[in-house]
């Protein structure tokens, strides 16, 4: 199990955190730590998620997050 660190830019709107955490829960991925903060742009928040998993889990996290309408970018 490798440590997976994901940095996301997301829309700063109510309910966005639920969509992201629900995705992890539904696919059976555990979030080890999570940090969210506002940016200079009031429309955008940044999020750092740490989770553990194999390559399969890592790829699925990236691709499933990429489908969320409120996720602007991931790196």
């Amino acid at each position: 199990m490798d440590k997976i660190q994901l940095h996301l830019s997301v829309v700063n709107r109510f309910g966005v955190l639920v969509r992201i955490s629900e995705l992890f829960a539904r696919r059976g991925f555990n979030i080890s730590s999570l940090e969210v903060h506002e940016t200079a742009d009031p429309m955008v928040s940044e999020m750092t998620i740490v989770a553990y998993g194999d390559d399969y889990a890592h790829t699925q996290m990236l691709r499933q997050l990429g489908k969320l309408h409120d996720v602007i970018s991931i790196d």
Binding site: G15, V18, R19, E22, R26, L68, H69, D70
Partner: peptide
């Protein structure tokens, strides 16, 4: 209903 349907919709809005 937005909370309820997050996993069964492509996206939803209030």
């Amino acid at each position: 209903i937005v909370g309820i349907t997050i996993p069964v919709t492509k996206h939803n809005f209030m």
